[in-house]
Design a protein around this nucleic acid. Structure first.
Length: 952
RNA sequence: GCGAGAGUGGCGGAAUUGGCAGACGCGUCGGACUUAGGAUCCGGUGCCUUCGGGCGUGGGGGUUCAAGUCCCCCCUCUCGCACCA
């Protein structure tokens, strides 16, 4: 890079002609923008008043209704921003600025999701503390975002790594830890303080699992029972363990071929003691409460699928173990109506009954099969997806419906993690079971009559039951739904089964063996985990010499993770008085996952400096409370803008935490985000040379349509993400330098609908620049700098155009249709350019135009507003309101069609009668010519806009 | 395989309820101003045309006075899930 000289040629700035003193160039835009950003900061323009607490300024709120507009906060990465990142931030800012001008008290700010792996890995490489790089990145991000003119309340922009913030993350953890889910409360249960449960055991109101009196249990027995009820618990869980990385990974950090996304190390399933959060307790509420959220349907659908509710039945199949003991295999099925067709059973390889049921002669085969299933990677399962494998245990169960002895197999197409880990196999009505039955020569009995034209194998559709009767019950002839009901009743009467509901949702793995995350507020004694008191918060992340987890041979599947904090011996070993006098404890050395901090940051935005509570209840209810007039309103953030990549995990975890806080009475809202909007992505072209290496995209030229050259060499174009390795990154800083922040904002908002992805095209940005330049010139003289607007009356036509624009822009902004709002503003401005080329633009049009453009190009608008003689910021000026009288047309253009084709047009009064319009239309030259000799069959009239003449 | 969404000029896109297809912008062509132009301004720009008009919203069929919009079949692309009993 050469040093910037400021000349147009070298910087590529859009400032070719500097002869005019006040020409709207990139340089002038930069000066204006810096000036207004300073003034907004100095005057606290976007400081939003709270009704109570440390930011309380009730007088400033007045009678304005509130609005909470928020972005998904960014991770402050070292790579910096490209033009795709701020798309949502700009959109939320335009909306927030508009709503502020429309009279709302708007809360809009930006924090940082700053714990996480990249900072830790950088620290491992450089030895520099992750806090240092994180804080440096935050400073840089703040500067970049400020340069864009985002109207954030700077007092509320929390970072998840602040001690004052993660103190409350830990506090929420304690509330969840100290709670249990009371299924018996209300229709779907509620979280309650664990003290309530303890009191129930102590009073005898709740029996102990084995029926002994509570007081007879030892302390450790009591603790085990209580810990088993908590919403956070320690569990032996199968996790993704990457020895080469030295850490466990979340599922989304593992590639499709079973390796780590970073480092490409093998990943093994290992069973390790991990912290889990009991999100499954909330499955039903997380599902049903989706109905009242104003969210994109695809996101709701993804959450529904993720939760995966199925209705069915648990059925018991009696079985005798090798040793002659009576047991039952309990299975979950969604099709209890097909039980008469269950001709064999399958246990998952990990099922606890496998050992007891495997006969001597099958021992080796089963052991071999289980071992191979255990080591099978995900990719192998993928490849073998359709090939069914398995081995018989040699034991038989009884199908109580038919009385038949049916064989019990072990097969990996049954998963231990879903249902009971065992199935009744009904090949007649299940494709997987059909395949397995064919492979192993097992009997197939149809229990649902397929239609006559059905030529497939397993039939999974509707139909009357057949072959489904015994001495006590017959399902034959019943439809699927009725048959289900009848057979569940029969099983329930016999005590051999029950109707039930199952979910795919699993509990949330909450431990990470890493350094750069929130420490748990937990210590351990010999018996188990003990929560620290709130007074011990925050549990500050200790200094360590080495931030890296211990790594192993990448293929050493028997290795165990060793968390970085476990080496901080002085911190881990601690003497505390937790009520029974000073005792020695070991601190928990895992840290929380990155999702923890992002689960509740929206709450902290509302009350960032509160040091006695997570959030003041009055403040929470003000910003997030439910609408009183709508019983279905769940409350929450009024608008949450972010990418669809968080459709499930972040948004589900945040909903879960919010519901716990609701149950425990800390928040009044039932949901965190009332309305969600997914912005699209900005994509980019990348170019590869014949060897397949990427070449700098900005130096590629289009030779002819569809063919491209880089320095005279033909290159291939591809379309996708923007990224350093693709050599196609364009940064906001470059755009601000070349055009100014206002132009960049207008361009991003005018590219297309916000929810759609679209390609970045730097050469098209000039159009937005020209638009702002023309506004500038319509209002002041760029040579003298004097305002040319005059207090003259706008003509009738101009006035109507203005008010139509106001009306349309308001509608578009309300619906987040920024691209069409900008198009309407351009039209209005182009009208002024043409109509007032030789005379001053009337003030009554200039001022509303400036106000309407302000959400998009706030600096330019502020500058013009002040030059128009206003001393204060326009941030709180009334957004223009259309005069309804001026929206009503007096005459309209009527389209005259013959056989549906436009043949003529008429300018007619709006109130014209159908008869009169028909007469006028039939007389037009266009109609007579098109009709020729033909007569008229009918005339369709939609007065005053359309007439369609139908010829014979 | 299942589920969801999308296909409109050279490009990004517009078109409340079925009612003027292509708003607005980029690009491009012509002109003005200029020593100069990757600036700015003005004008043209869906395709074909014998200048009457004809054809056009992924392809094919249908409903209707009228279809980008509604219905049926097919093609392509993107995203999500993927042995969930």
């Amino acid at each position: 890079m050469t040093e910037a000289t400021g000349s147009a040629e070298q910087t590529g700035r859009a400032e070719p002609d500097n002869s005019a003193a006040l020409r709207y160039t990139a340089e002038l835009a930069g000066q204006i923008e810096a000036r207004w950003q300073e003034r907004w900061a100095a005057e606290g323009t976007f400081s939003t008043p709270n009704p109570a607490g440390s930011l309380a300024e009730p007088d400033k709120i007045g009678n304005r209704p509130k609005l909470f507009v928020m972005d998904m906060f960014p991770y402050p990465s070292g790579a910096g921003l490209h033009v795709g990142h701020p798309l949502g931030f700009i959109a939320s800012d335009c909306y927030a600025r508009y709503q502020r001008m429309a009279g709302r008290n708007v809360l809009h700010t930006m924090g940082f999701d700053a714990f996480g792996l990249p900072a830790e890995q950088y620290a491992v490489q450089t030895g520099q503390h992750p806090r240092i790089t994180t804080e440096a990145n935050i400073v840089r991000y703040r500067a970049q975002l400020r340069r864009l003119g985002l109207g954030h309340d700077p007092r509320r922009g929390v970072a998840t790594t602040d001690d004052d913030y993660y103190r409350w993350t830990q506090w929420i953890f304690l509330q969840i830890f100290n709670s249990w889910y009371d299924e018996s409360a209300g229709p779907s249960g509620t979280a309650r303080p664990i003290s309530v449960l303890i009191a129930q055991f102590e009073s005898g109101a709740r029996p102990t699992p084995d029926g002994r009196p509570w007081d007879d249990l030892s302390e450790s027995e009591q603790r085990a029972i209580i810990d088993g009820h908590r919403l956070v618990y320690l569990s032996e869980a199968p996790v993704n363990w990457a020895p080469g990385l030295g850490t466990v990974l979340a599922n989304e950090e593992v590639t499709a071929d079973g390796r780590s996304e970073r480092g490409n190390f093998p990943v093994f399933k290992a069973t390790l003691k991990q912290w889990m959060m009991r999100i499954t307790a909330y499955a039903e509420r997380l599902l049903t409460d989706l109905d009242n959220l104003d969210w994109p349907e695809p996101v709701k659908l993804m959450q529904r699928n993720w939760i995966g509710r199925s209705e069915g039945a648990l059925l018991d199949f009696p079985v005798t173990t090798v040793k002659g003991e009576d047991r039952v295999i309990s299975v979950f099925t969604t099709r209890p109506d097909t039980v008469f067709g269950a001709t064999y059973m399958v246990l998952a390889p990990e099922h606890p009954l496998v050992d007891e049921l495997t006969v001597e002669s099958q021992r080796d085969a089963v052991a071999t099969y289980r071992a191979s299933a255990e080591t099978k990677s995900d990719v192998e399962r993928q490849v073998e997806r359709r090939e069914k494998t398995g081995v018989p245990t040699g034991s038989y169960a009884i199908n109580v419906a038919t009385g038949a002895r049916i064989p019990v197999y072990v097969a990996d197409y049954v998963l231990m993690g879903y249902g009971t880990g065992a199935i009744m196999a009904v090949p007649g009505q299940d494709e997987r079971d059909w395949e397995f039955a064919e492979q192993f020569g097992l009997p197939i009995i149809r229990t649902v009559q397929p239609p006559a034209d059905f030529d497939g194998k397993a039939y999974v559709g509707e139909g009357p039951a057949i072959n489904s009767a015994n001495d006590e019950i017959s399902l034959d002839g019943l439809g699927v739904a009725d048959a289900k009901k009848a057979i569940i009743d029969w099983f329930e009467q016999r005590g051999a089964g029950t109707g039930t509901v199952t979910y795919k949702l699993r509990d949330w793995l909450f431990s990470r063996q890493r350094y750069w995350g929130e420490p748990f507020p937990i210590v351990h004694d010999e018996v188990g985990p003990i929560a620290l008191p709130e007074s011990a918060l925050p549990v500050v992340l200790p200094e360590v010499d080495d931030y890296s987890p211990r790594t192993f041979d990448p293929n050493d599947r028997n290795s165990k993770p060793e968390a970085p904090l476990s080496r901080a011996h002085d911190w881990v070993e601690v003497e505390l008085d937790l009520g029974d006098g000073p005792m020695r404890y070991r601190r928990e050395t895992d840290v929380m996952p990155q999702w923890a901090g992002s689960c509740w940051y929206y709450l902290r935005y509302t009350d960032p400096a509160n040091d006695t509570a997570l959030v003041d209840p009055v403040v929470e209810e003000y910003w997030l409370g439910r609408h009183r007039d709508d019983p279905h309103d769940p409350g929450g953030v009024d608008l949450y803008i972010g990418g669809v990549e968080h459709a499930v995990l972040h948004l589900l975890y945040a909903r879960f935490w919010h519901k716990v806080l609701y149950d425990l009475g800390y928040v009044t809202s039932r949901e965190p985000f009332r309305r969600l909007f997914n912005q699209g992505y900005i994509q980019a072209y990348a170019y590869t040379d014949p060897r397949g290496s990427y070449v700098p995209a900005e130096e590629v030229e289009e030779i002819t349509s569809g063919s491209y050259e880089y320095h005279g060499q033909a290159v291939q174009r591809e379309y996708g993400k923007m990224g350093k390795s693709l050599k196609n990154v364009v940064t906001p800083d470059e755009m601000c330098e070349q055009f100014g922040a206002d132009t960049f904002r207008v361009y991003e908002m005018s590219m297309g609908p916000l929810d759609q992805s679209r390609p970045w095209e730097t050469r098209a940005v000039i159009g937005s620049f020209r638009f702002l330049q023309r506004i500038w010139r319509n209002i002041l003289d760029e040579d003298s700098g004097s305002v040319t607007v005059a207090e003259v009356s706008a003509g009738e036509e101009t006035r109507r155009i203005l008010h139509r624009t106001i009306d349309g822009v308001r509608r578009d902004l309300d619906a987040l249709r920024f691209n069409t709002a900008i198009a309407k503003l351009i039209e209005l401005n182009n009208h002024l350019t043409k109509e007032y080329a030789d005379q001053p633009v009337p003030l009554e049009v200039a001022e509303p135009l400036v106000l309407m453009v302000a959400p998009f190009a706030p600096h330019l608008a502020e500058e013009l507003w002040s030059r128009l003689g206003h001393s204060s910021s326009l941030a709180y000026e009334q957004f223009p309101i259309a005069d309804p009288a001026l929206l009503v047309e007096e005459t309209v253009t009527c389209v005259v069609q013959v056989a549906g084709k436009v043949r003529d047009r008429l300018e007619v009064p709006v109130g014209i009668s159908e008869a009169e319009l028909t007469e006028l239309a039939l007389a037009t030259a266009g109609v007579r010519r098109a009709l020729g000799a033909r007569g008229v069959r009918t005339v369709v009239v939609r007065a005053p806009r359309l007439v369609n003449v139908v010829p014979e």
